[in-house]
Design a protein around this nucleic acid. Structure first.
Lengths: 135, 135
DNA sequence: TCGGGTTAGTTCAGGACTAAACCAGTTCAA
DNA sequence: TTGAACTGGTTTAGTCCTGAACTAACCCGA
């Protein structure tokens, strides 16, 4: 694979993602959160602190502060002070948050699945395996 | 593949792209353009009008106006009025623009290739085939 | 040849994002 | 047990981006 081909590949991938985001934006918005907020919410279980989330999702800390604040205001998230380290804000997804999260992820997955539908089951598994090696 | 798995797959992919962007941002910036500007520039040959570019790259028209303006100011792009339709601005990549574009794409491709290096040649070909079916 | 509907591109105002600076709590060497 | 260096998180201030509204040019039917 030549270098320019790799760039082309990258570009293809980027366009795919942007396109999927814009198609679900309206429906996800109806749930009361933005697509990016949905991504944050969906990683809280795995990375329950803002700083960890920022690293995991490749975004600056102040941005994460903002998202957490919004999600908390919307009642999708709660903060608790970590007894072991008083600087840390342990994040907990509320029941309402969990419900919205699952609906949102379903919407997103449906839109992506509409694209994935062009692939066979075996190909989907392949793709997953390849991406996991890359990240 | 369940619905949540599809969302997970999407998330993996997104993270990969963001991560690659941030790693090349500094080097590409040294060339005198932003990563997103590079993407615009690289599609000008194929889509020589701002409106077409906006659709192709999945971004709003006002944003495209801004990028074209910057690229033009930097001397990487020229506008010509289309004789057949006076509303249209036909875009032409200048020699300087072409040089920067190739260097930028190489940087991007190298960064992506560094990730791709984790895959065998056969796997890379697989990935390419899968993504092309998806877009 | 008029005029309603459409498209290309821009402007502007307001919202989204983030770099820099900051405060508070933790850690650890002296 | 200090205090210097570090980490978690927020605030501020300013930049970047985009939805809405606009102008100019095109198209086409009556």
């Amino acid at each position: 694979m030549t270098k320019i081909d790799a760039a082309r590949l990258w570009s293809l991938n980027h366009r795919l993602l942007m396109s999927v985001i814009t198609t679900v934006a309206a429906e996800v918005g109806a749930l009361g959160l933005e697509v990016k907020e949905l991504f944050v919410l969906s990683e809280v279980d795995e990375h329950p602190y803002p700083a960890e989330l920022a690293v995991a999702l490749v975004m600056p800390k102040p941005t994460m502060t903002l998202y957490v604040k919004r999600l908390e205001a919307a009642g999708f998230l709660k903060r608790e002070i970590d007894a072991a380290d008083l600087r840390k804000h342990r994040l907990v997804v509320t029941p309402a948050g969990r419900k919205v999260m699952q609906r949102g992820l379903t919407l997103l997955a449906d839109a992506f699945a509409a694209r994935l539908g062009r692939l066979s089951g075996g190909e989907q598994a392949q793709l997953r395996g390849l991406l996991e090696k890359l990240v």
